[in-house]
Design a protein around this nucleic acid. Structure first.
Length: 190
DNA sequence: TACTAGATCGGCT
DNA sequence: GCCGATCTAGTAG
């Protein structure tokens, strides 16, 4: 079952936690590739100094101000893309950054998109989608998908395993300088 | 295994 | 002009 719009239209921390274990599915010319979400981070509102929206609306982040259930994709460090899922109601800027995916199907396609070759070593398989930039490369997610509706087939998230609270680890967010006091990173250990 | 630096560019100050 | 919600390769230990 594809997650409905109302799933995303809830407090961001709750959505972030519940996204763990869900299936993210990318459909490219009829082929489905994807896997389970293992790691996420929450970025919430203008009072969060680490959130792109903290300095107000700009052309880049305006999708975060829009309705829930859409993709926010942006370029980081000039070479990598990051995928976020917009949460909460319109005009409240918040999103969940997808930081890690456990590949399940379409793995060959992922290998091709990340390493430009057919087979991967054990190590490369481990590193296929265990980071925000990596999973975007593996799943073929680019800024063309910025603003994409997650209720459509191009990129969507399906209900799946529910992860027990005891297997979720919360830590400070990664790669930011401010807002590190908040434990808004959720990792599925299992 | 642990740390450092380089790649690279769009968006904002 | 500066710097970032990153990743990888390279060097040192």
């Amino acid at each position: 079952m594809r997650l409905s719009r109302s799933f995303y239209d809830r407090p961001t921390l709750k959505v972030a936690r519940e996204l763990l274990g869900k299936e993210i599915v990318r459909e490219i010319s009829g082929k489905k590739i994807g896997g389970k979400i293992t790691e996420v981070e929450a970025y919430i509102g203008q009072n969060d100094p680490a959130c792109h929206a903290c300095r107000g609306k700009t052309p880049r982040n305006e999708i975060m101000f829009g309705s829930p259930g859409y993709a926010y994709v942006y370029l980081i460090y000039g070479m990598y893309e990051c995928l976020n899922v917009v949460t909460e109601k319109k005009d409240f800027p918040a999103a969940v950054l997808i930081r890690g995916v456990q590949p399940e199907y379409g793995i060959e396609t992922m290998i091709k998109q990340r390493y430009q070759k057919k087979a991967a070593t054990e190590k490369e398989l481990q590193n296929l989608a265990n980071g925000p930039g990596k999973l975007c490369q593996a799943l073929g997610i680019t800024r063309k998908l910025n603003g994409a509706d997650l209720l459509k087939k191009e990129l969507s998230i399906y209900d799946s395993t529910s992860v027990s609270e005891s297997k979720i680890k919360t830590t400070p967010r990664i790669g930011i300088k401010e807002g590190t006091d908040k434990l808004w990173r959720f990792v599925w250990e299992g």
